[in-house]
Nucleic acid binder design. Structure first.
Lengths: 349, 349
DNA sequence: TCCAGAGGCTAATAGGTATTAGCATTTCTG
DNA sequence: CAGAAATGCTAATACCTATTAGCCTCTGGA
């Protein structure tokens, strides 16, 4: 029988109904242990009226007036759509969902920025409907992040972000640590010459972190360059050349940044009659989201996306409830996958 | 250097700067072709001031003044968590996300209802933070749906829902139609005795719809009962007995409600030396979300979850923008999966 | 009897925007 | 040149909540 949008009851309506003032309704609603006291009788009358009329605070008014909404915004810099992104995106969301539920917050997914997924649009942002925000994306617009930081709006980036000017809060996977451990394990097994390889430029933060971990695992001294070369390929087509270099250089183990690279390497190696891990150990630093063509159980790391989502949410809520002037950074350990693509090097014949 | 949140410039600030009134700033900002005109000179002055000071409209104030929030609420009656639900839940969400993005709405995920996932809590609901809501869940609380309907709050259920009293709007998969087509196809292939089987009680709406489709495909007349028996098993353990009945009754094709049932049936049949589809054709009415143990390409239907999410979102937005007194119901066709588990019956020897 | 103090509540205001009635000025029309 | 119409803008108000200063009443003590 509902004809047209029914106007939602406001605090003023409830106040009229309960025979009190709007201010009293607000005070009851927010249960502040402020200096203002409300008698239990009145409180109960107000609560009853709220229940009866299904009163719900207006989020916009509330946030305009400076109150909390118990809403966490989630902004992704890429559309979730192209289905390839789904595997990347959803585990984070899952973790956020779980943490938000525990903490009593709802999640506001910003989808409406249009194709470009900007935080600011026509100079305005809907983000501020939420109490704070989680930002997410492999290829964020750095200027927008800086601009948002400068507004003082609380947010946490999911993933390692360094921007110019003041730092921002983030929760990142500890790629460096995991890579270091994996690489050290190769040396422990007896490998002496270990290479690092990636496809694409190594400019992205996760890429830099991984390389840093690799370098940290290198033995000290001047042998370092010889011991652990880093190759950056432009495309998967270059893998054949990489393999030639590997054989030439007496390299017995490769740390591959991406699954795609590792798979290509495996294919080339097998074509050359080499076995993995018999002739060549391979460690992979990416996880298997996206297209993977083989079921090879790679030795490497897993990206703890769910845990990152959870932890970012917890961090944000901490920041919301007790604001801090400085940015906070947290690392989440990457679980190591044992896999079957690493073995001791073949003994010199 | 940002010490504390810098106050963002408001329209009043811009107005002062450009030597106009706040109203003018608002008018310039919104470029309404209203009856109010602004001279190009003034417009330019205002725009310049906005640019210079990095003016950003306050979303809360804007929606407070405007009424609509451009937010669609999403309520799930089960937690997304137990990871088994993820496959069920996310495709819907994906469709909603896409549609919401197209339509310029954001998605508010209600997670905070605590363990019980109730719409109403203490008699009030956070749902109305949003302009309207999408409800979702295999096992919803029917009373809550009725109550929500009676508040006049606009919502669309994703899935077929019938509740007592007035009807509610929903977008459902056309299980009945797809089941009917699949069953008719069996008869066309020459099967004469076709059974329907399920595990668990058939009380849920999707179950009833499927059975209805099955019955519709039956040839008319009194032969109907004999032609198409319906079995309801209590547990997978009963499948062996079911198979015995099938062989006894000369049944050559089975319409199985769940993948689990079909897989069990296949296992039993093979144990008995029967082949599928040689000796027994099997159609499956569930899709493969959740644990499936074999890779059998079942002949059956797919649940168009993404499309349902998309369509529900579109329907809701239509309802929001031009309110209608009556509930709307829409069906989404289930794609049919050809699969390899259906064949003509073996010729009588 | 007067005063102090506490208890219980309200009036008033801020917060930033959108909208509309209406005012002042200029230009057009006959 | 008077009156009408168009132009360009502003003042005022509504939207709904949170917060604070302050008012009124009642109790207990001196």
């Amino acid at each position: 029988m509902s004809r047209g949008p029914v106007r939602r009851p406001t605090q003023a309506d409830i106040a009229r109904l309960a025979g009190v003032s709007q201010a009293t309704v607000s005070l009851v609603l927010n249960e502040r242990d402020s200096d203002v006291r409300i008698s239990p009788t009145t409180r109960e009358r107000v609560l009853a009226a709220m229940r009866e009329w299904g009163y719900v605070a207006n989020a916009s008014a509330r946030s305009l007036a400076g109150g909390q909404n118990k809403i966490i915004g989630v902004h992704t810099f890429e559309p979730v759509f192209p289905t390839t992104s789904v595997d990347f995106y959803f585990p984070f969301l899952l973790g956020m969902e779980q943490a938000a539920a525990e903490l009593g917050y709802d999640l506001l997914l910003f989808t409406s920025a249009g194709g470009e997924r900007q935080v600011f649009r026509d100079g305005s942002t809907r983000l501020s409907l939420a109490d704070g925000a989680l930002l997410l994306g492999r290829d964020p617009n750095v200027e927008e992040i800086e601009r948002l930081r400068d507004t003082g709006f609380p947010f946490v980036y999911v993933g390692h972000r360094e921007v110019s000017g003041a730092p921002v809060s983030y929760v990142a996977a500890d790629y460096a640590g995991a890579t270091q451990q994996l690489t050290e394990r190769l040396f422990e097994l007896g490998h002496r010459r270990v290479a690092y390889a990636r496809i694409g430029d190594g400019d992205a933060q996760p890429s830099r972190d991984r390389e840093k971990g690799f370098r940290r695992a290198m033995p000290a001294g001047e042998a370092r360059r010889l011991t652990g070369p880093v190759w950056t390929l432009e495309s998967p087509d270059d893998v054949a050349g990489l393999l030639a270099e590997i054989r030439h250089g007496g390299i017995t183990a490769v740390v591959a940044e991406q699954v795609l690279l590792a798979e290509e390497l495996l294919a080339c190696a097998q074509r050359d009659g080499m076995s993995v891990p018999g002739d060549l150990s391979v460690v992979v630093l990416g996880d298997s989201t996206g297209a993977r063509r083989t079921d090879t159980p790679w030795t490497g790391l897993a990206v703890p996306r769910e845990e990152m989502g959870r932890q970012a949410t917890h961090l944000l809520v901490r920041l919301l409830e007790t604001p801090e002037p400085d940015a906070r950074r947290e690392n989440v350990e990457c679980p190591l996958m044992p896999g079957t693509t690493v073995a001791p090097p073949r003994r010199e014949q």
